[in-house]
Amino acid sequence: MLSETSTATVRATLPAVGAAIGDIADLFYRKMFAAHPELLRDLFNRGNQASGAQRRALAGSIAAFATQLVEHPDTRPDVMLNRIAHKHASLGVTAPQYEIVHTHLFAAIAEVLGDAVTPEVAAAWDEVYWLMAGALISIEERLYAQQGVVAGDVWREWEVVARIEETSDVATFQLRPADGVPAPAFRPGQYVSVQVELPDGAHQIRQYSLSSAPGSRLRSITVKRVHQAGAPDGEVSNHLYAEIGAGDRLRVSAPYGDLALGSADIPLLLASAGIGCTPMLSMLEHLAAIDHRAPVTVVHGDRSPATHAMRTDHALLTEKLPAATAHFWYEDPEPGHPADRTGLVDLSEVVVAPGTHAYLCGPLPFMRSVRTQLLAKGVPAADIHYEVFGPDMWLAQD
């Protein structure tokens, strides 16, 4: 909880800080990477830095956290914090790195806001930062302990056992630990980070959902190639697609992610678009293995049947569940595809059972649309869960 004095100061300065937070975040990253170029080379996503997505996400998370402290002092935005902490844990972020962030973030605040940053203002926002950082460090320590690893030591070498071409742009890599030690347990819907060495010597990291069920002998990740070869946001997927096959090795993190199925036998809706189907495949395989009996509504949107990765598996796994239905929308469908399943996902005629918990994964516009439609159907916001790969531009909505 923010102190009474700091609450008043933050409330008074939040409009000014909020208006400048984009400039602050931009300057912060420039200062930090100038002092620690290894962070951009080996930890931060160069694609998100190039596009500005990381800057906007940082600004949004700080503004959302500060607003929460001021407007709802007796509650904590745990959904936001947990999502960030899971991502940090999958990257191996450690407590000392928060000191680095603090140094350069507050240098940026002072430079952008100038004389407006009085000692009282600096102290109040310092309190905001350490409340947020402290909460994240605590959650991340718990996540590391759950995996039985030392803080930050999340990486192991895995061997690629097989590579399966799913579509012209999507490949599945079946993996097993190279050291022969059993693979760590995970929950359906979780992801791993994969670190690769690129031609310029950088060690870039991206997250991929585990597309196999927890009980599978092998772990699988399914990767869609980003059609911007040589661009920062496509450098890892293109490297994996062009260079990695059976017999190769990858550095893979322990599994993390808060988009994970619970154990209750309740109605579910699994909505995905594009490569967002991968965590849903893991969930469906798991639900079939445990003989889930409650209704399951499977929703997927794609450009065409040819681009729908693992389309056959998506349908067959749905058919294994006694009370499941699949609804696939295609913008460019095959002849004979139902007209009411052509175009973008439209849930107006889809029955959503009372008590449904929904899980969403796909591009942000798709998830916004589906979430809006589910809210209109009476699904509580707390029962709609989502996964974002890349900086989460949606944090303030939770």
Results as ranks from 00 to 15, higher is better:
D169Q: 13
L375E: 15
G378V: 07
H239F: 14
I205E: 04
L136Y: 00
G148N: 06
I164C: 01
G378H: 08
Y191P: 14
I100Q: 03
R30G: 08
Q190A: 11
A64E: 05
Y241E: 08
G390I: 04
D302L: 04
E120C: 01
Q146R: 14
V101S: 04
A162S: 14
R249E: 00
F28T: 05
A382H: 09
V196F: 02
G378D: 10
D179Y: 08
F366P: 09
A110Y: 00
A19F: 00
P184R: 14
S51N: 09
W394D: 15
S211N: 05
T13W: 01
T312P: 00
A16C: 00
A358T: 05
L131E: 01
V70D: 04
L284V: 02
E99D: 14
A382C: 01
A382E: 13
G336I: 03
G257K: 07
A260R: 14
I164T: 15
L270F: 14
V10D: 07
P322Q: 04
D248R: 15
G189R: 10
F65R: 11
Q397K: 09
L69G: 04
V154W: 01
P232D: 05
R83N: 13
P255A: 10
V93W: 00
L58K: 08
T172H: 05
A110C: 03
V149F: 02
S61R: 10
L284I: 02
R225H: 09
F389G: 09
F173R: 02
W155S: 13
L395R: 05
E235M: 15
Q174C: 13
D248W: 10
G274A: 03
T318D: 01
E159M: 07
E127Y: 07
S90V: 09
V345D: 08
V17P: 10
A25R: 04
T13D: 03
E127W: 04
L14I: 08
A20Y: 01
A324W: 03
E120Y: 00
D74A: 15
L268E: 09
V192M: 10
P232F: 03
L105A: 09
H86V: 01
L143A: 11
G262E: 07
L374N: 10
C277V: 15
D115H: 10
A396K: 12
A185V: 07
E99C: 00
S6I: 06
G189K: 11
Y191R: 13
A213L: 01
L43G: 05
G390K: 02
A122N: 08
F106T: 13
G230K: 05
V161N: 04
P322V: 05
S51V: 00
A273H: 01
P177S: 13
A135R: 13
M367S: 10
T312A: 14
E141W: 00
V170I: 15
G180H: 09
R55F: 01
G148V: 05
A162I: 00
